[in-house]
Amino acid sequence: MEQLMKVGEVARHFRETKLSGLKPPQEFFDHRQLSRPKDLNEATSRITYNTRHFSGNYLLVIAILAVYAMLTNPLLLISLAFLAGGFAAINKFAPEPMQVGNHVITQKSLYIALFVIGLPLLYLGSPVSTFFWLVGSSAILILGHACLMEPGVESEYAGIEGV
């Protein structure tokens, strides 16, 4: 129960800090602010400003891409569910050794069986290539958007503090 409260606290903190900064779709997809940067300095300054300005939206893009990657790779989804479900089931239903016939089944032997079956299944699900696809596609989308979006008028006053 205590762990569940910690998860709730982390989720609330994440929502308050990151997701509260979500910009509306009209601002995020404003095609009138799209332009090619003149040089590398302008591209770098745009990326710096826009990654801070649209950080909540970019986290949402990464989350959507991660869900898409999991849904299009069913073997990875099945293997992760098998490992997580097996781990939870062993913790819940087999905390103490059991006698089955002449054999004593311990929690350690159940974990070994879970990993002997689950890890090759996970390997076949290719999590490494899915991870690198997620990193690459996120980087292309986010850096492309951040580079092409002109900063708004408020960016001119970002360095000036109120008197």
Rank of each mutant, 00 (worst) to 15 (best):
L40V: 14
L40F: 15
E42I: 06
A43P: 01
T44W: 14
S45D: 13
S45Y: 03
R46D: 10
I47A: 04
T48E: 05
Y49C: 01
T51E: 04
T51Y: 10
H53G: 03
H53E: 06
F54P: 02
S55L: 12
S55P: 00
G56T: 04
N57M: 00
N57D: 03
N57W: 07
Y58L: 10
Y58N: 10
L59E: 10
L60E: 06
L60R: 04
V61M: 05
I62M: 03
I62H: 00
I64T: 14
L65M: 12
L65C: 06
A66S: 15
A66H: 10
A66D: 11
V67Y: 15
V67Q: 12
Y68A: 14
Y68F: 15
Y68D: 12
Y68N: 09
A69Y: 09
M70D: 05
L71W: 15
L71K: 13
T72M: 11
N73H: 15
P74S: 04
P74Q: 02
L75D: 07
L76Y: 02
L76A: 01
L77K: 11
L77R: 14
I78F: 14
I78Q: 04
S79G: 11
S79A: 15
S79I: 09
S79P: 07
S79W: 08
L80C: 04
L80P: 00
L80D: 00
L80V: 08
L83A: 13
A84I: 15
A84C: 13
G85A: 07
G85E: 08
G85V: 03
G85R: 12
G85Q: 06
G86R: 04
F87T: 15
A88P: 03
A88V: 15
A88T: 11
A88N: 12
A88F: 14
A89F: 13
A89S: 15
I90F: 01
I90A: 03
I90T: 05
N91E: 15
K92E: 10
F93C: 01
A94I: 03
A94D: 07
A94K: 05
A94F: 13
P95I: 02
E96W: 02
P97H: 04
M98R: 13
M98Y: 09
M98N: 07
M98T: 14
Q99G: 01
Q99Y: 05
Q99V: 13
V100R: 03
V100H: 05
N102H: 09
N102A: 13
H103P: 00
H103W: 14
V104E: 12
I105M: 03
I105N: 00
T106L: 02
T106E: 07
Q107E: 06
K108N: 11
K108Q: 11
S109V: 07
L110M: 12
L110G: 05
Y111S: 06
I112Q: 01
L114Y: 06
L114N: 06
L114H: 07
F115Q: 03
V116M: 07
V116Q: 04
V116D: 02
I117Y: 05
I117H: 02
I117L: 13
G118T: 11
L119I: 11
L119A: 09
P120I: 00
P120R: 06
L121K: 00
L121I: 03
Y123N: 05
Y123E: 04
L124H: 07
